[in-house]
């Protein structure tokens, strides 16, 4: 019985904080917008019993979904968000891997300190850290000042308010989420495996690709998901650092919700985002799991 309680806690958590809100969003996505409180119709009126319920269901429609697919804006926003998130995730991986590798190879007694240092930025508000990048990247910012003084460039670079700045912002902000799972999987690798590879005449680079890299794959996958999924829906970073032409679904959602005051369409956008994002990821993890089980 006690075990059952323990297992049920995460499920209750998921139902209350994920499933129920999602169902509410789903319900709104089938409604129509109206100028009222709340700003959509129909509103479920349970006091009228079955009639209220019937009335409610008869007014639901797929119009909002049809609308989203009829305007290329939404599809382009999805594609561009996924593209930006994918490139940023890859860049994060490139930066994080050597860091995690170095941490895993550092003397054992240093490692807790190094992990602390990775987590340290979280002590400052995310918003303030993104704002700080404005000071670094802007035309008269620290980066341009440094490069000009070093004589590397003669004209200040325009990085602020471009998609490049968004990449920098995402890589910086999400780096710890990539480093930690990578470090966890790299740290577990038994060094004797590499010694064995060296004994058998494998040069270090080959050992890396044939031993270390495959063994760190679970960390890579976990890190990539942790970065990619929030990056797709990212709003703050593109809003503060990005230029106006940086099209991302987070911004589209904002416009739909606040400027158009169209809760139903914005709910539909959110539901589709969830479907395009979560379903492939769940399927992927399933296949990974079956592979692992088959391999074991």
């Amino acid at each position: 019985m006690r075990r059952w309680y323990l297992i049920s806690i995460p499920y209750i958590w998921l139902v209350v904080f994920f499933l129920v809100p999602f169902l509410i969003v789903l319900k709104i996505s089938f409604s129509q917008t109206a100028m009222a409180i709340p700003p959509y119709i129909p509103v479920l009126d349970l006091s009228r019993g079955i009639d209220g319920l019937k009335d409610f269901f008869s007014h639901l429609s797929f119009d909002n979904y049809r609308f989203i697919f009829s305007d290329s804006l939404y599809i382009n926003a999805y594609i561009s968000s996924v593209k930006i998130a994918a490139i940023a995730t890859f860049l994060t991986l490139l930066v994080a891997y050597p860091v995690a590798y170095g941490m895993a190879r550092a003397p054992k007694e240093w490692q807790p300190t190094l992990v602390m240092l990775v987590i340290l930025p979280f002590w400052t508000s995310f918003l303030i850290r993104v704002y700080a990048w404005i000071g670094i990247l802007k035309k008269e910012g620290l980066l341009n000042l440094l490069l000009m003084n070093l004589g590397l460039i003669s004209e200040p670079l325009t990085i602020m308010n471009t998609t490049t700045a968004v990449y920098i912002g995402i890589v910086y902000s999400y780096l710890p989420f990539m480093i930690l799972p990578l470090y966890a999987s790299l740290e577990k690798i038994n060094p004797s495996l590499l010694e064995a590879a060296a004994d058998l005449g494998s040069p270090p680079i080959r050992s890396f690709w044939q031993v270390t890299f495959p063994l760190s794959l679970p960390g890579i996958i976990a890190g990539c998901f942790l970065v990619f999924i929030p990056a797709v829906g990212e709003f703050v970073i593109p809003d503060l650092l990005g230029g106006s032409e940086t099209l991302m679904i987070g911004k589209t959602l904002w416009t739909e919700f606040f400027s158009n005051r169209d809760w139903p369409v914005s709910s539909a956008v959110a539901v589709i985002l969830l479907l395009v994002l979560v379903i492939p990821i769940v399927l992927f993890q399933r296949s990974q799991q079956t592979q692992r089980e088959a391999g074991a």
């Binding site: 926003a77 416009t255 400027s259 158009n260 169209d262």
Partner: peptide, 19 residues
Amino acid sequence: DAKTQRAVTRIWTKVVTGQ
């Protein structure tokens, strides 16, 4: 009105993002 607002927002998005 809601319809004009949507049209205006759409035109605006086109201007701002080029989409």
